[in-house]
């Protein structure tokens, strides 16, 4: 009990004094996850719009594949990326294993299906609302996709935030492909896991504060986006 109390006190101290390790790890976490989010959005959002607007041959197949990928345990994603990037693997020559690039790749694989799926759901709804009008106006396929992406931007932000939340809190996959190397690939979740196992609750808790704050910020923003949409303040 005393340990815990001490830990909390020290954690607060670390946070207030902006401890160097804490800041470094937090910033790396943000950099990795935001990079992954950026790449994922580039893939997921247009894909979601295309799936909503166009009726093509492999549409259903792509949707089921995405749903299946969404259920993939992150650890397994980590394992697969590890095998692909390991020295003897097909992409071994790139030397990406145990770098933040590998972690970004793993996170992209984990969150792209999630973002696509959530985005697709809301864009499909929007499309059923707009369908007759946009068809009547002779819009091109591209104009339809652009219109949906723009008018659905709040929902798309929400989808991206869900992806961010998933990626920033993920530990299994990035532990495997990143290796949790100090000053190189250590991020919030992997550091918490390590510090806890070492019994050093102070840093673990401080890192936990950061993680919780980020999660709360995501939650709050999601909520706020939903409200502005419903109340038509934009």
């Amino acid at each position: 009990m005393n340990d815990l109390w001490n830990g909390i006190q020290q954690a607060i101290w670390l946070t207030l004094t902006l401890d160097a390790d804490l800041v470094e790890i937090s910033l790396r976490s943000l950099r990795v996850t935001l990079s992954a989010l950026f790449v994922s959005c580039l893939i997921a959002l247009p894909l979601a719009a295309i799936l909503a607007v166009r009726r093509f041959k492999y549409r259903r197949l792509i949707i089921s594949t995405l749903n299946a990928l969404m259920g993939l345990p992150p650890v397994v994603v980590g394992l697969i990326v590890y095998i692909l990037l390991s020295r003897s693997g097909p992409f071994g020559v790139l030397g990406l294993l145990f770098t933040t690039h590998a972690m970004v790749i793993a996170q992209v694989i984990i969150i792209t299906p999630l973002i696509t799926s959530i985005a697709h759901q809301s864009l499909r709804e929007l499309w059923s609302e707009y369908h007759d009008l946009l068809i009547s106006m002779n819009t091109s396929k591209w104009q339809r996709i652009k219109t949906l992406l723009w008018d659905g931007r709040r929902a798309l932000m929400t989808a991206s935030l869900a992806g961010f939340g998933r990626a920033i809190g993920e530990v299994g996959a990035i532990m495997i492909v990143g290796g949790n190397i100090d000053h190189a690939t250590r991020v919030l979740t992997t550091a918490i896991s390590l510090e806890t196992s070492k019994g050093d609750f102070a840093l673990a808790l401080a890192l936990g504060f950061v993680l919780i704050t980020l999660a709360l910020a995501v939650n709050f923003t999601t909520h706020w986006l939903g409200r502005t949409e419903r109340e038509g303040r934009w």
Partner: peptide
């Protein structure tokens, strides 16, 4: 050279002005 006004009006989730300008922008 045709337009259609639907039984229940379909409004884009945009401002009044942007709704009006939409066909021109298209």
């Amino acid at each position: 050279q045709q337009s259609f006004v639907f039984q229940s009006p379909i409004m884009l989730r945009r401002s009044v002005l942007e709704n009006l300008a939409y066909p021109l922008v298209i």
